[in-house]
Design a protein around this nucleic acid. Structure first.
Lengths: 327, 327
DNA sequence: TTGTATGCGTTATCAG
DNA sequence: CTGATAACGCATACAA
């Protein structure tokens, strides 16, 4: 790898001049500029970001911490973040936390050890020293903490909508699936749904689940219909679980949506191609990722910030696992 | 952030001693060790990886380049890579290439600018200077190049299996979907399928597709049944497309698998919960990711390497979009 | 307009 | 067993 010294020597100038020309700081004569440029070309020089980072105590690196990229909601988020970052010349150090505090800590630590200029995190414990002590900006994604910059959607409202639409379409023995206890967004949507069910005086049951994994989803689905065989409406904790419930319902010979209605959550890409296609509460994942990155960059670059807390809209996405609403 | 100098001062020793104790290089008296340890604790010191990287010209950073994390095949791969890396204290700088040479170049460049010690790449152009000129080890994932370290599965064989099983189950007017022209694995499986179809003298049509995106998949599916309404077997280019074809077939009132059989490719997690569940050719994505990371680490750490080219097995995963084989 | 010297935080060499 | 010190590649203050 050629260094700035090589370039300087090759161009017959000092490293300072090369540095100035590269960074566009200070004057440099047209002729010498030309010399330096050809030197750079010939040596295929590219600046060593590590040295830069050491000197400036700032890098072009950013940390992204997500629970599990294997859950189809997160790739959308990640892609949004990545696209925005890459368009602004930032790079991403990526890690999966598995919602585990230790792993999370560990990643955050290596983020700072590597001089990242900011981090985007999807965590259940934003209100901890792990984040409070950070000297760099943090944006929470898909999660919130009061007064902390964050991009998320209104889980409670999403849950309420799901329940409301389910009731409006005639289900009267509803089963609400409660996602993992320590996952905030899962609990928010759960609470929202239960709230609405109670308000409307509708009978409901709860099935507890402890993960969002594809492999477990089938188990929750079986359990659901074993415990509540006469349920006529399922509000799932996310689309994966909803898909598993749909699968199980059809396997048991139940007609969807005639006998059982199902509403998912997230609107991950696969939801639209299920059979029947899944009715769900949509979160604009990709946009959320982009927004979070945009916000973080604004902090990093000290740009003006209108709002440091963005609540994105959730929308009822009606497809074929629900009946037409009664007028 | 506390530096090694702070620790040294705090412990009343020189930085050299602190460094020695941290890295376990050279002797250090038991008493001073204790002093240093408490100093580290009190100051919450963690070594600056950037400074380390600058001096040693080596980091704990690794580059991972994938086409598109939004395609559900890749999160599995990525997770495998990440798990193995993280267990070995390596971190990942991640980027999506969109199968685009420029983006790819760009990422590779910033990888080296950041002193990564190795890269894992899923690329269609492994045989280019971009990779040949790299001074650090590279492992190609899901793609191969002769003699280059790589982890992939046998696409041609996968295609052959798909066609063979489709024929064995009675389809006689098969449609093979050809994935994006520039994506090697897609072409391999396509060729394999066509090869087998020809060998067996079975009538077949080809539908060309140019992406793996969820949004486009529906279009290919519609087009397929418009052009070849009497097809009785579809070999899709991957599971996403297969899911779309399944969706469309049912929408058109076709019985699956009675009137149309469908075979996908990859066995992404969603395949098992489709209705009917998708028969597909499985690639062990997670394991492939792990294997690639393990291989890369072996290169990085100069460990002995048995095989630098790993071809993982593809397996026919029989579910419900195909009929029982004729005995 | 350009060059010299210094320091960013670490590790390794070498002398003590 | 320990401490000065040079060097990694770069950007900046200051001189020229």
């Amino acid at each position: 790898m050629a260094t700035i010294r090589d370039v300087a020597k090759h161009a017959g100038v000092s490293v300072a001049t090369v540095s100035r020309m590269i960074n566009g700081t200070g004057y440099v004569h047209e002729d010498t500029r030309r010399n330096i440029e050809t030197a750079i070309k010939e040596l295929q020089y590219t600046p060593n970001e590590v040295a830069r980072s050491l000197y400036k105590k700032k890098s072009k690196l950013t940390g992204l911490l997500l629970p599990d990229i294997t859950n189809p909601f997160f790739p959308e988020l990640a892609r949004g973040v990545e696209d925005e970052m890459q368009e602004n010349d930032y790079r991403i150090i990526f890690g999966n936390s598995d919602e585990d505090r230790d792993k999370e800590q560990d990643y955050i630590q290596t983020f700072v050890q590597n001089n990242v200029v900011g981090v985007i995190a999807s965590t259940n414990s934003p209100d901890t020293d792990t984040y409070r002590k950070l000297a760099i900006p943090v944006v929470f994604l898909d999660r919130t903490a009061d007064d902390s910059p964050s991009v998320y959607s209104d889980g409670r409202e999403g849950g309420r909508i799901a329940a409301r639409e389910m009731i409006a379409r005639g289900s009267r023995r509803v089963t609400v699936m409660q996602g993992p206890k320590h996952v905030r967004p899962a609990q928010d949507r759960f609470k929202g749904a239960v709230e609405m069910l109670k308000e409307q005086g509708i009978d409901y049951n709860v099935v507890q689940t402890s993960s969002f994994s594809f492999t477990d989803a089938g188990t929750w689905a079986e359990q659901l219909f074993r415990q509540y065989p006469d349920t006529d409406g399922v509000i799932a904790s996310n689309d994966i679980v909803a898909a598993a419930v749909l699968h199980e319902a059809l396997k048991l010979g139940k007609k969807v949506p005639e006998e059982v209605q199902i509403i998912g959550y997230d609107d991950v890409p696969l939801s639209g191609i299920l059979n029947p296609a899944l009715t769900t509460i949509r979160q604009p994942a990709y946009d959320m990722g982009r927004a979070a990155a945009r916000l973080l960059i604004a902090f990093i670059e000290n740009k003006p910030i209108e709002q440091s807390t963005l609540q994105m809209p959730v929308t009822f996405t009606e497809r074929d696992t629900t009946r037409k609403a009664e007028q």
